Amino acid sequence: MSRPVQPVEDFTTTCMIMGFVNLLWVFVLVFLLWGFPAVIVLAVIMNAGIDRLRSHLNSQA
């Protein structure tokens, strides 16, 4: 028995919010363990990785 294909919900907003929540608790944990300079270093490393991923994805398009 075949059923028609139905569209699914868009979970983009939910995914972005949960990503922010996870990033926030990781930054808080790093801050509590090693202090503010470690959070800044982690943020710079993550920013460089995101920029590299963005340039890689743009070059493929």
Rank of each mutant, 00 (worst) to 15 (best):
V8K: 07
I17A: 05
L29V: 15
S55R: 14
P37R: 00
N22C: 09
H56A: 15
L53D: 13
L57S: 08
G49A: 09
C15N: 12
A38C: 05
V30L: 02
I17L: 07
F27A: 06
L24G: 08
N58A: 13
L24H: 00
D51S: 15
G49R: 09
V39E: 01
C15L: 11
T14S: 03
A61E: 14
G35H: 09
S59A: 13
S55C: 07
M16F: 13
I40P: 02
N47S: 11
L23S: 12
V41H: 11
W34M: 12
N58T: 03
L23E: 08
D51R: 14
T13Q: 06
I40Q: 04
L32P: 00
C15Q: 10
F36M: 14
V44P: 05
F20T: 10
I45Y: 02
F20L: 01
F36G: 05
N47F: 14
L57C: 04
E9N: 06
I40W: 05
L23N: 07
T12N: 03
A43Q: 01
N47A: 13
V30M: 05
V41D: 12
I40G: 04
V44A: 03
I40V: 10
F20M: 01
V41Y: 08
F20W: 02
A48D: 05
D10M: 04
D10T: 06
T13W: 06
W25V: 15
N58C: 06
V39M: 06
E9Q: 06
L29Q: 15
Q60H: 04
V21C: 02
P7N: 08
P37W: 01
M16V: 02
A38Y: 00
I17R: 06
V44I: 09
V21L: 11
T13L: 07
L32I: 09
A48C: 12
I50K: 07
P37D: 01
L33P: 00
S55V: 12
F36S: 15
L53T: 01
D10W: 04
T13D: 02
D51L: 14
I45P: 00
